[in-house]
Design a protein around this nucleic acid. Structure first.
Lengths: 178, 178
DNA sequence: CCTTACATGTAACAAGTTACATGATTAG
DNA sequence: CTAATCATGTAACTTGTTACATGTAAGG
């Protein structure tokens, strides 16, 4: 049920098309909430049907119409309600941990390879996050509340990444002489 | 597709009933892979149909039969194959981050409350993990490879928890004077 | 008296994934 | 010649959630 609120939140910041949202949910917002384009289009359709979004179609020559969505007052109210309701924590479901748990059946080379890939992925992500941090949030104290909260979302990404890298150090050390 | 391998891994360690597995997947293994009892029973049925699990029903008076499952050679082969295949990282989908992203629409009290709840939850979890660590893994260097890997899964839980608490400190400080 | 443990399941639904479809334009 | 960008969608499938069902016995 949270995808719809992620969409409402994104559209509250700025009206957009499904296409735009799909870009964002793959990149900037991917670390907050990821979704495929099919999910996005489907959910936008529903939100519009329910009157939480308004839609304006811009006809285009030789292409499907661009449909620009914006949050209606009803949509904003729904979002506010949801924001005020405590959400249960998402369950952990990590295939890597399943592999570790399977223990002795795991091939050593394959495991090391997967850890190495994970390290590279997090190093890249962290670098990207840090660049955003340096460019937009260099002086957090002076930010408005709105941007402080967004900064905190980014900080969550950063601290999570650091924790993974730290764990990877431990893992590689402990596998060294296993 | 990973639930089935989580089940195979658990049953490879020790044959069990659906009921047993449901206990485990709520507790010890909940931080590795969580699942509801309905998912577990459904998947066990499928795995048995496909010949990856053997099943022995123990009739009980006045109660449904206990069905004890064990991994067949075909099941172990399937598990090994899966373990050797790199798995994509699970997508991030955290409603709390969606809330932070929505920024100024979030009520301050509600947000602080949710952070406080999160802190308590992680403190409890961390305490539990640390007890497991102290009891079973006090001397990691001497562990067999099998238990080292399980220890690493636990360490992942611990380092993740520490990162959350660290982030919560940051969050509370930054919200102090917003 | 009410809840929890025991032990399994059916049914219906919501959420998320994968494959396929259209069709022009631009960049390598 | 191939792939990517633009812009939306349908259809079929898998995974995960929620509600409901059964029926005894023990513990607070």
């Amino acid at each position: 049920m949270a995808l719809r609120y992620a969409l409402l939140a994104a559209l509250h910041e700025e009206p957009a098309t499904g296409y735009d949202l799909n870009q964002r949910f793959g990149r900037r917002q991917g670390f907050v909430w990821s979704a495929s384009h099919q999910q996005i289009y489907r959910e936008l359709g529903r939100l519009h049907e329910e009157g939480l979004l308004s839609m304006e179609a811009e006809p285009q020559a030789e292409r499907p119409d661009r449909k620009r969505y914006a949050v209606t007052p009803a949509g904003e109210a729904a979002l506010r309600d949801w924001l005020a309701t405590p959400q249960p924590r998402p369950a952990t479901r990590d295939p890597l941990l399943v592999k570790l748990f399977a223990g002795d059946l795991v091939d050593d080379e394959a495991l090391r390879g997967e850890l190495a890939t994970l390290r590279r992925a997090w190093e890249e992500r962290l670098a990207a996050y840090r660049e955003v941090e340096a460019t937009w949030f260099s002086d957090p104290e002076t930010l408005s509340r709105h941007y402080r909260l967004q900064y905190l979302a980014l900080r969550r990404g950063i601290t999570a990444g650091q924790a993974w890298l730290h764990w990877l150090d431990e893992a590689e050390a402990l596998l060294q002489d296993a």
